[in-house]
Design a protein around this nucleic acid. Sequence first.
DNA 1: TGCATCTATGTAAACCTTTACATGATTCAT
DNA 2: ATGAATCATGTAAAGGTTTACATAGATGCA
Lengths: 382, 382
Amino acid sequence: MQICISLAQLMSRGSKGLLRGSRRDGCPNPDTRPRGVERSVQHQKLATIEDVAALAGVSIATVSRAINEPTKVADATRRKVTEAVAKTGYTTNAMARSLRMRRSNMILILAPDVGDPNFSNILVGLETEASKRGYGVLIGNTQNDPTRETDYLRFISSNQADGLILFTGHLPYGFGQEGGEARLPAMVAVNEPVANADVPFVGVDNFEGSRVAAEHLISQGHRRIAFIGHSTSKAVNMLREQGYRAALQAARIEVDPRMILDGDGTTESGRAAAEHMFVRDVLPSAFLCVNDATALGVIISLNTRKYDLPRDFSIMGFDDISFASFVTPALTTMKQPRLKIGEKAMDLLLALLEGKPPKEPEVLLRAELIVRNSVSRPGYER
Amino acid sequence: MQICISLAQLMSRGSKGLLRGSRRDGCPNPDTRPRGVERSVQHQKLATIEDVAALAGVSIATVSRAINEPTKVADATRRKVTEAVAKTGYTTNAMARSLRMRRSNMILILAPDVGDPNFSNILVGLETEASKRGYGVLIGNTQNDPTRETDYLRFISSNQADGLILFTGHLPYGFGQEGGEARLPAMVAVNEPVANADVPFVGVDNFEGSRVAAEHLISQGHRRIAFIGHSTSKAVNMLREQGYRAALQAARIEVDPRMILDGDGTTESGRAAAEHMFVRDVLPSAFLCVNDATALGVIISLNTRKYDLPRDFSIMGFDDISFASFVTPALTTMKQPRLKIGEKAMDLLLALLEGKPPKEPEVLLRAELIVRNSVSRPGYER
DNA sequence: TGCATCTATGTAAACCTTTACATGATTCAT
DNA sequence: ATGAATCATGTAAAGGTTTACATAGATGCA
């Protein structure tokens, strides 16, 4: 039995869709195939543009043009080249191309922890968009280690990556100190805006989202609403707290400082904050949490105290992480459009690379209210 | 105020640790610095090996050697080169190097969904190990789309990646059909072994882990133990079921086929399976689930039916995903060493790239029993 | 017909390394 | 003192593209 698909051909198949016209039907009779092809497969030595040129009877420049700027080449020639490409299984060597063009079509993504589900889902969006546009995605898991952050910049400086996506909320350690003297690489921040630097940001509208969440609670009749997760260090937390305050203000509800508790966004801190409220015995009818993880902590605390949720207390989170729908009671929350955030951020970065300056310094996407079972009208109204 | 750290210098800092000896202390007086440096920064044109050679007064070959094989160069010369490198802020151009050396020091990771927390945590391990060894990590999110799988192979065929990590459980679509005629790239499978192909595998020991889990239930006195998540399609499920059977057999408990239910590993399927048991009214005292997501479904079902857990039923999962500790009752489960799996898999792949054939076809890591609150002695014993 | 313009292709340089081989200096053993 | 061996460095080729510029033929227009 004669098997005709060569590895190289196989690999070149989907390649950038350049060779759309190539035949995928019958195999040429083996002994009409140029000898060079078989050797190249056996010896792991891939076909080069020269092999294609020789087979097509044109110069390498023409081959290059036929592939990259098809309109600049005569129809007949283009056909010959396309055919030769198919026969040899040629794929353009990305290294040589990058060396020559001084761009790698790669994007470096710097994140503190790719394992964080909030990050990894944005990552999917980033990757999807990049791949659609012919870019590859390189990941750097910094674990908040300054050394590693700096280290990853070698991908930029060595031309291995053209642009940078930052999850970290700050420039890589030590970066940008020279006050604009040196141009920074194309960058877009995601998840957390970069402080003290002019980096375009794509993320959820935290202020607005939190406002909508608080409004939802208010619309259910709540007036004593606690906010768990105050923290001045992160923009996310600050904005969400401000949204909460705005909603209360708009409803003419005075903001009670005893209703605003600290937290660092972890489940444990949510639990601790709820416990703290019981110790002080200043109880709200609803908890608005800075994120779902915190809300989970609150729920655990309340469940442990044998409260009946949501009859006794209403709880809202923010993010809509996967288990929000599984916890009891299922959590009413604001859904972050993570996929869209990733796609939009990558879109912006690629536009930047093509020399288009961003129209606005930040793109804010709406969070969506997801109503589940953790909110009801407050007990004293029933 | 004079700021002396140039962007290029900054970027070259951590770079592969080659220039360990370079000074990081006082800045040279600005006007003793060669003019070229400033220009190169301004014009975004990075220093090349030639610039370094000129400054150090040696040939480019010597510079290359001083950087890559320091022992082959005289001490004095090495010092001169190191100094010139520091002054120019030289970083070796990865593209040129890769082109010449025909290796990119990049690894391509193919995963169906990077957003899956099970995957993303292995990913962290992969990345950590790769980075430690000077490799970069390229991700391909295939979404189980055959076209995308094939498409990503261009990274291999174009020399942009040297090796491949497969999360997918199968070779990229259409790959390897030519029956060994063409050599496949260096590959290691993770999470799910590759069927019908000789690809080294690194993962958790599912059989043994599941056996330990079942043993744990048996040791608590359970004899009617259901297994939720039977499925012949995936190796993971098969092995976990076999571990369950082995434990029962060893304890001389007959395996009741009515106690083995289908499931596809989702929370919904776990819920459905539990419901199914109640409809048929063939009840176990404990549920051993193929994974935590399934176990969560079972718990939801039982909670909804107002059972008191774990008094009425014991539940065990497998994986130890993040919320396992937050659900009520907190889930007793087998913890997958995800980080370690990633690290080990990458280690194996890099060894493979260095020409060392793997000693064994698969590396199995032990799962760890995590005891929480979802298991107690069965009710009829109390 | 003659000249300008356009189109299709080819030539060769540039992108920046690594490394086989050559060279010359130094050391060592005889 | 001589030849061999070792060491440090330099020369130049090779790796595979893209593209500015040159060339030659075709086309258009007066």
